[in-house]
Amino acid sequence: MQDTLTNEEICKPENMVYHRTALLTEAPLSYCPGCGHGTAHRLIMEVIEEMKMQANTIGVAPVGCSVLAYDFMDIDMQQAAHGRAPAVATGIKRLYPDKFVFTYQGDGDLAAIGTCETIHACNRGENITIFFVNNGIYGMTGGQMAPTTLPGMKTATSPFGRDVETMGHPLKITELIANLPGTYFVTRQSVHTPANVRKAKKAIEKAIQYQKLNKGLNFVEIVSNCNSGWKMTPLESNKWMEENMFPFYPLGDIKVPK
């Protein structure tokens, strides 16, 4: 008899084991199908909801695909100029030291135009949390080469592949900032498999918890896909990411508190 439970008998509120967090708004996400941004948004909002921190959180949105992050996150947010989110977050956090302040940035925003703001916020040990989504490309502007684009990788501005002789090398900004005394917790995660999603959520929890300690900047890189920019299906892009991005940007904690 138990084997023949109807849909109605199973789909009762008390049996619900997963539903999108209430801190994501009803607005449909503006991201391409299969883009990791959506999952990254969801995890951050899940943690803020679980920690009951909505009233205490101020987020900073970047310029890039996630420029409209504030449309999807049901928290107070400010939209920053391209690359300046760490400076904006610094201004907020210095004046509201008890609030949870985070930035959400892409690789062009954080590691090209905003390198100066990123490095100095890290070096000052600002008590903010940076969520850094690295997909090796400028997504919103149409797939141009990013500071993180892999050698040989084809983009709209490296149509024959990134030639490191003339276009420079990909920047491992996360390893770079992990060397600065002002960073406290630095980790690299991904959100493309259930196991990786679970690990990434734990890392996000730590990066939010640690801000309360006032020990420095907490930094979570999420290596992600850009199936539109990479010109692949979502499933192909995740496979390509595993085979090409992860060897160059290996997952795992880079700096953990002693």
Binding site: I58, Q78, A81, T90, G91, I92, L95, C116, E117
Partner: peptide
């Protein structure tokens, strides 16, 4: 100066 004006932007927003 770029960082300082954006810190002002953050502070002003709050």
């Amino acid at each position: 100066e770029i960082a300082s004006i954006h810190m002002v932007y953050g502070g002003a927003a709050s």
